[in-house]
């Protein structure tokens, strides 16, 4: 099931990137997709972690929310960078990641880093070490809303 979806994704990418729709070139595309899927199967990297089909329905909703957070955090960081006295107070602290699996933790850590003002600098089992630019960024993260939403993603799959 993952192999089929991987093959379809690869073929769609091929069609979009090539822009040439003659039978011979489409044949070449199908051939390369089959070869790539065969190699991926042989390497045993086709599983729910590398190709999370179970998330594809619910992930766009999460991305919309994340996009809103990114815009708000960007505006905050922009104000701090442009303020003449450089109004920052960097701190390092830990947050608990309540996702059980590694995929959830990776999504959570990457979402934290993608939001300006907070960067994941280390992962220590279930604890993420975060470097925050200011108290505001730290406070936003410590409400735990992002953690809750990422955990909900894992629960849906």
């Amino acid at each position: 099931m993952h192999a089929i979806s991987l093959g379809l994704t690869l073929f769609a990418t091929w069609l979009l990137l090539s822009g040439v729709y003659e039978p011979f070139f489409i044949f070449l595309g199908v051939l390369s997709c089959v070869i790539v899927v065969a190699i991926a199967l042989r390497m045993e990297v086709v599983d729910r972690e590398s190709h999370p089909v179970h998330l594809s329905m619910i992930l766009p909703i999460y991305w919309l929310w994340l996009g809103k957070e990114i815009v708000l955090a960007n505006i905050d960081v922009t104000k701090r960078i442009l303020s003449p006295r450089l109004n920052i107070n960097p701190t390092v602290f830990r947050v608990q990641a309540s996702q059980g699996d590694e995929l959830g933790k990776v999504i959570y850590a990457n979402s934290i880093t993608l939001t300006p003002g907070t960067v994941t600098i280390d992962i220590d089992d279930d604890d993420l070490v975060i470097h925050a630019l200011s108290e505001t960024s730290k406070g936003d993260l410590e409400t735990g809303e992002m953690d809750r939403r990422v955990t909900a993603l894992g629960g849906a799959g």
Binding site: V77, T78, I81, L86, P90, L114, P116, V119, H131, L133
Partner: peptide, 19 residues
Amino acid sequence: VRLPDMFARMHGAGVTDTL
């Protein structure tokens, strides 16, 4: 350019990379 150390500068680079 302005922020004081490497970890803080990553936040600046993050603004460029996202928004």
